[in-house]
Structures are given as C-alpha cells and as structure tokens.
C-alpha cells in the first residue's frame, strides 16, 4: 500500500513538474466582457427570466455569443440540478434573453456561461422571493446571510414589480 502511494505521489509530482514548466500566465490586461444581468421571477416553479446585456471592454455590444444559463442552490450544492437553458438574442445589439425553471424559492446562484467570440463565466447570487398571482418580481442580488423568502413578504425583495 505504502509503495502504491509512493508511486502515485511520484506520478503526481512528475505531472506537476511538466505542467509547471510552461505554466499558465494570467492576462495582465483584461479582455473580459462586461455582463449585465437583470432577472424577474414569476409563476409556478418559479420561472426565472433573465435579460443579459453583453458588452466588450470598450463598451461596444457583443453579438453572436452563445449563452447558457444554469443555476445551483448554494445551500445544497450538487443537490439541485437545474437543466441549463440557452439564452437567445432579443434582436437588440448585445442583448440576450433566457428562462429557467427553478425548483423552489430561496437564494440561487445563477451561472451565465458565454462561448463564441469570447469565453466567460459569471455567477450571481439572486434571492427568489414569493411572487403572488400573475406578478413578475425582480430577482434582487442576494445579500450576505440571505437564506430565503421571509414569511409575509409577498413580492420580490426589492418590492419592485415589472
């Protein structure tokens, strides 16, 4: 067993050595796009509709990107697997729209995976609150320590309706 572990250690050490030589270099000047995100929740599920505004570093709209939306619950990692959905262009420059079906209310971490002209992934924590009837409620950024919807607060935490 000890011999086996030693062999394993040698393999990992060798792999590290070979990987360490070229070594990844972090970009000093960033070409990361700017990602604007606005989401509203509505209906049963609840549904989460997100509008993504994609811009290059210089502020010009970024078109022809493939965007996939996904979500996890930080309080239960790997336990709630929401099917990722593609976001489609709305026709406006650099603007995309996609809808996810969540499993429950609470704090969700929304992943925006971008491929195409640029590769980027951003994640934002959103608080999905109770949204009664046909209302569409803004999904506000979750604050530190947010756990989920509070009883008696019927609409989005910001109270803002679309």
């Amino acid at each position: 067993m000890t011999r086996l572990l030693c062999h394993l250690f040698k393999i990992v050490a060798l792999a590290n050595l070979t990987m360490a030589l070229p070594g990844p270099v972090a970009a000093q000047t960033s070409d990361r796009p700017q990602v604007g995100l606005e989401c509203v929740s509505y209906g049963r599920g609840p549904m989460l509709e997100c509008l993504i505004d994609l811009k290059r570093r210089d502020g010009t709209p970024l078109d022809n990107a493939q965007i996939t939306l996904g979500a996890i619950m930080p309080s239960m990692p790997m336990a709630h697997t929401i099917k990722p959905m593609k976001a489609a262009s709305t026709g406006r420059p650099g603007e995309y729209k996609g809808t996810l079906t969540l499993e429950m209310l609470g704090v969700w971490s929304l992943d925006v995976d971008i491929t195409g002209p640029v590769r980027e992934k951003v994640s934002r924590n959103l608080l999905i609150n109770v949204c009664k009837g046909d209302a569409r409620c803004a999904a506000s950024p979750a604050k530190a320590g947010d756990k989920g919807p509070e009883p008696g607060h019927g609409h989005g935490s910001s109270g803002h309706k679309h």
């Binding site: 493939q66 996939t68 996904g70 790997m78 697997t81 099917k83 990722p84 593609k86 995976d113």
Partner: peptide
C-alpha cells in the same frame, strides 16, 4: 437545446464524480 442538454449531462456527471 441539445447542446444545453449535453452541457447538463456533463455538469451532472461532473457533480456525481466530485460527490463520489
């Protein structure tokens, strides 16, 4: 849609391997 499903399958498999 199929790309998104394939991403879902990859994500789920990765989660299963990590959880394992």
């Amino acid at each position: 849609m199929s790309e998104a499903l394939s991403a879902h399958a990859i994500g789920l498999s990765s989660d299963m391997a990590i959880m394992s």
